[in-house]
Each structure stands twice: as structure tokens, then as C-alpha cells.
Design a binder for these strands. Structure first.
Length: 319
DNA sequence: AAAACATGCAGAA
DNA sequence: TCTGCCTGTTTTG
């Protein structure tokens, strides 16, 4: 159940611990057996996240990176993974610290051995005392293994092999991702996409062709932080307000990538912020708080369906 | 033990 | 708007 920050962290994990190595690729579960055979024994040359898509690039041969017209040219095959609602990567073995502010992996410093991290539904440290590499547990669709690190994929909604051209097409259709492109043009593209449509802004924020990476939690929290009613039609959202949504998404995304935690409350003092990093119940202002008092005005938080998903909002603060 | 639920999305109707 | 799919965890009976 990842939103964009999670997928960027996964891409970074691949960059740090898998890229540059020859990978043994298998499908313990069997459902990706053909694809695994194609990739097995080839070098991993790149990993990128675009919104909620993860792309892992495999080269035909080791080393010898050719001068490339774009980032997708460096690989001859790309593994595209989308985690959907249930997907997760379990990492075992050598796991380099992802960021200086990382709280999810535990202590900083040298790469750790025999440490496992599940990245997907939140992030947690798994006990891993057995031999390396560990036997696959449960339904492992794909295992990408190097000498020192094992990445197990489970429950993805998409797992397929693409050519560079197919990746380019997919990426061109995706909405802007502020972690990849923080330019004024990307911001403008988002603002215009919102204001071009009558659809509720709450729905547009989760539309991956409007903006990449936002899911149900960030959606609810971004709109609360902007004090904006999710049911406001996109075309009536002032350009300045839409711009603020983009800027705030960029901030929350970077923070989520750094810490591995979706901490979206603006009202926390530093001490409470530290506590919230380890206590999920303290992280959100409206998400998952139906019936409980709004942290800003004490009115009961409302939950209602929007396009089949649960939408949380404060009926008093958000207009 | 069974059911409900979850940070998602594609495809059909 | 609805259904189906993917897997694991939590809640209910």
C-alpha cells in the first residue's frame, strides 16, 4: 500500500545495493518464471521511480555504459513493478542506509548485514536470523539476488518486462512527479491539469495522469493542509491554491523519502514529531480519524466515499 | 475460522 | 459506477 515516497525509497535501495551487480533473478512462486529466465544472469544497470512505478533496468553485458540520449537508453530490458494495494518488497542481507534522516532502517552507519526491511505497507524491520540467502517466505513473485542482497517482490499488481520505448511511452503519460522534476514547468503542468477539469479536486489529486505518486493518505492530508474542500471542482480551484498544493506535495514527498514515514501533521512540536515517527497514530490530521475531533477546530472528522475510496475531511476547516 | 480491511488501478457496463 | 485482482494482517464471531 505504498504512495510515491515508498517507491522512490525502493528505487534508492536498488541503486545502493543492487545496481552495478549481476543479478540472479528467479520467480519462487512461478508466476513470473518466463520473465525471470530472461533477466537471470544479467547486470542491473539502473533503477528509477516515476510516481508509483518502479523501473529496474537490466543490461545485456556488464559495465560499458554507452553515452545515452536519456535515462531509459542505458538498459536493454526494464522490469516495471507496480505494488498496487498489497504489494511489497522485502530486502535481506546488506542494506545501506538510504538517507541521513532514515528512521525506518534503524541505526545509521556502515551497511548492515542480516537486516531485513519490508517496504510497501508502511515500512518495518523484519527479524532475519537465518542463513543468507534466506528461503523465500510466502508468495514471492520475483527474487532479485546479488552476492550480498536479496530483494523479494510479493503481491504486485503489475510486474512485467518492457522495452525502453515502452517505458518512455508510459512515463510520458504520467503526471509530473516533483521528486523527478521540481521545475516551474512541471508545477504549471499540474496547475493547468487541475484547472482544466470539472472533476472534484480530491479525485484529481489521485489521478496519476494529473500528478504522480499521491494516494489516499497524502490526498486527504494535502487537502486538509490547504484547507480546501475535496469536492471543489478542479476548474474553480484558484491557480494560486493549486500551486500551493503542488508545493506542499513536493515538501511532503521529500520528507517521506527521507524518513520513510508519512508524517503529514503541521501542528506538531519537534518532540511530538519525533514521537510520531515511531507512532503511526500520531501522524495524520484527518486520515483515519473519522468521528474524532479535528485537530484544528475540534469539529468531528467526516469519512465518505469518493470514487470508491474513503475520503476523510474536516467539514468545518475545508471549504 | 471466517470475514473484513488496506497507502491501487484496470476493465467492463 | 461497478467488479475483479493481488496478499497479508487485523477484527469479528
Amino acid at each position: 500500500m505504498p504512495e510515491g515516497h515508498t517507491v522512490h525509497r525502493i528505487a534508492r535501495r536498488f541503486e545502493l545495493d543492487v545496481v552495478g551487480e549481476v543479478a540472479r533473478v528467479t520467480s519462487p512462486q512461478g508466476r513470473f518464471a518466463d520473465g525471470a529466465r530472461v533477466l537471470d544472469g544479467r547486470p542491473v544497470v539502473a533503477a528509477h521511480a516515476v510516481g508509483k512505478h518502479l523501473f529496474v533496468g537490466f543490461g545485456p553485458t556488464e559495465g560499458a555504459a554507452q553515452p545515452a540520449p536519456d535515462r531509459w537508453s542505458v538498459a536493454s530490458s526494464w522490469l516495471r513493478v507496480h505494488l498496487g494495494l498489497y504489494g511489497a518488497w522485502d530486502f535481506h542481507g546488506r542494506l545501506s542506509p538510504l538517507t541521513p534522516g532514515d528512521v525506518a532502517v534503524g541505526s545509521m552507519g556502515a551497511p548492515r548485514l542480516r537486516r531485513s526491511v519490508r517496504v510497501g505497507e508502511g515500512e518495518s524491520t523484519l527479524a532475519d536470523d537465518g542463513p543468507f540467502p534466506p528461503d523465500p517466505v510466502g508468495q514471492v513473485r520475483v527474487r532479485v539476488a546479488t552476492e550480498q542482497t536479496v530483494a523479494d517482490l510479493r503481491g504486485p499488481s503489475a510486474c512485467e518486462l518492457l522495452t525502453a520505448d515502452e517505458v518512455r511511452l508510459l512515463v510520458a503519460r504520467a503526471g509530473p512527479d516533483p521528486h523527478l522534476d521540481g521545475s516551474a514547468a512541471a508545477r504549471r503542468r499540474f496547475v493547468e491539469a487541475v484547472r482544466a477539469r470539472r472533476v472534484a479536486v480530491g479525485q484529481l489529486l489521485m489521478d496519476q495522469s494529473v500528478v504522480s505518486g499521491i494516494g489516499n493518505i497524502y490526498r486527504a492530508e494535502l487537502l486538509f493542509r490547504a484547507e480546501l474542500d475535496p469536492w471543489t471542482p478542479g476548474r474553480t480551484v484558484p491557480a494560486e491554491v493549486a500551486g500551493t498544493l503542488w508545493d506542499d506535495w513536493a515538501v511532503l514527498l521529500e520528507d517521506g523519502i527521507t524518513t520513510g514515514v508519512m508524517l503529514t501533521r503541521a501542528d506538531l512540536a519537534e518532540g511530538d514529531r519525533v514521537r510520531a515517527l515511531t507512532d503511526p497514530s500520531l501522524r495524520h490530521a484527518v486520515y483515519g480519524r473519522a468521528g474524532r475531533p479535528c485537530l484544528r477546530c475540534a469539529a468531528p472528522v467526516v469519512v465518505e466515499p469518493m470514487a470508491g475510496r474513503k475520503l476523510y475531511r474536516c467539514p468545518a476547516c475545508q471549504r
